[in-house]
């Protein structure tokens, strides 16, 4: 009985799979003509749109609007491509036509339901359709169950200069994601519009290091008042990631009051911090820290030695001379080779 069942089930599954495949083949055959026609319509519409951005002909505009409204799915996909090519005023005019044809409505609808892929594309696409309705739809999409959609909606909303509640729910969500690099984009947008909210995030020790350091990076880019004090307040953090972020942001900010922290970080217990501090020295051209960089050429960690060498090479003639001296004195020792290779790489990239 059991053995017969194995045979019958196998045979049944094989038959069902073959029948399904046959149906798919027939469907594909049927759709071939439709896909060809769609491709032709798409090409014609693309030509018309590109031509219209040049001429601005009213009759053509009406024809495009009609064509766009007849197949909003095709139009949406096409517009996403067109907006990659057409920029500025032409893009705005086309977007106005598309809004009149109902594409904005379609995107706002897509944003609320359907596959993640479509919701995500809609959240991105709505950047070209600024309106109160768009802001409202995006505001709702910030609460989307899928993080990508939520963060994209938040970024678009922020880019449209719309008011967005950077509320506890969104912060919690950002903090939960913890790791995604997408949060950098969201935080960069918020740093422009709601720096005080990010400031709260950075100082909140209960948040993850990831979100705190990403917020700090975003805030430093804005150069808001008090940023130096904020960075320096974190310099003794027990977290390696946080000290790395402090070194990175001091290197980016370049304020003289941060130099002593960078100097101290050159002898930090963690190699990641020494590495980032070396980079900061090179970036800011802190000549007085040259001798410490020379010491780091003998560091246990290869990355620290390498970044210290690179930083020395960025210190101008004094740094280059120091490296050349090391080549001459240390010869084929690891120290001499580090100096020689750094100089060779610098010559090649110059």
């Amino acid at each position: 009985m059991f053995l017969t069942l194995i045979w019958e089930i196998s045979l049944g599954l094989a038959a069902i799979s073959l029948a399904t495949m046959m149906i798919l083949i027939v469907l594909r055959l049927k759709s071939a003509g439709r896909i060809r026609a769609e491709s032709e319509r798409r090409d014609t519409l693309l030509d018309q749109m590109l031509e219209w951005t040049e001429t601005g002909d009213a009759g053509q505009a009406a024809a495009i609007t009609t064509a766009l409204s007849q197949d909003t799915k095709l139009a949406t996909n096409l517009l996403i491509e067109v907006f990659e090519i057409v920029r500025g005023e032409g893009q705005q005019r086309l977007a106005a036509l598309a809004e009149a044809a109902g594409i904005g409505d379609r995107l706002r609808r897509d944003l609320t339901a359907g596959p993640v892929r479509n919701r995500l594309a809609a959240a991105e696409g709505l950047a070209w359709f600024p309106s109160a309705a768009t802001s409202e739809a995006l505001g709702r999409a910030v609460l989307d169950r899928h993080d990508d959609v939520s963060f994209t909606a938040a970024t678009t909303l922020s880019a449209l200069d719309s008011d967005l509640m950077f509320d506890e729910a969104l912060i919690t969500r950002l903090a939960q994601v913890n790791s995604s690099r997408r949060i950098e984009l969201v935080l960069a947008q918020f740093a422009q519009t709601r720096p005080e909210a990010l400031l709260q995030l950075v100082v909140d020790a209960h948040r993850s290091d990831r979100i705190r350091t990403a917020s700090l990076d975003a805030l430093t880019q804005t150069g808001i008042e008090g940023i130096l004090e904020l960075i320096l307040s974190l310099e003794h953090s027990p977290s390696t990631d946080m000290r790395v972020a402090v070194a990175r942001n001091l290197g980016s900010l370049g304020h003289p009051e941060g130099h002593h922290t960078i100097a101290r970080y050159l002898s930090d217990a963690r190699w990641e911090v020494r590495c980032k501090a070396s980079e900061a020295v090179g970036r800011l051209g802190l000549l007085e820290l040259g001798p410490q960089l020379c010491d780091l050429l003998l560091d246990d960690n290869w990355w620290v030695r390498h970044r210290a060498g690179e930083a020395l090479a960025k210190l101008g003639d004094d740094g280059i001379n120091a490296l050349q001296e090391m080549v001459a004195l240390a010869g084929q020792t690891p120290l001499g080779q580090t100096a020689e290779h750094v100089l060779a790489e610098r010559r090649r990239s110059a």
Binding site: L3, T4, I6, W7, I9, S10, L11, L13, A14, I16, S17, L18
Partner: peptide, 13 residues
Amino acid sequence: LAFLALTFVFGIF
């Protein structure tokens, strides 16, 4: 038949 099912027919599926 069970053996044929498991080695040939199921493979098709």
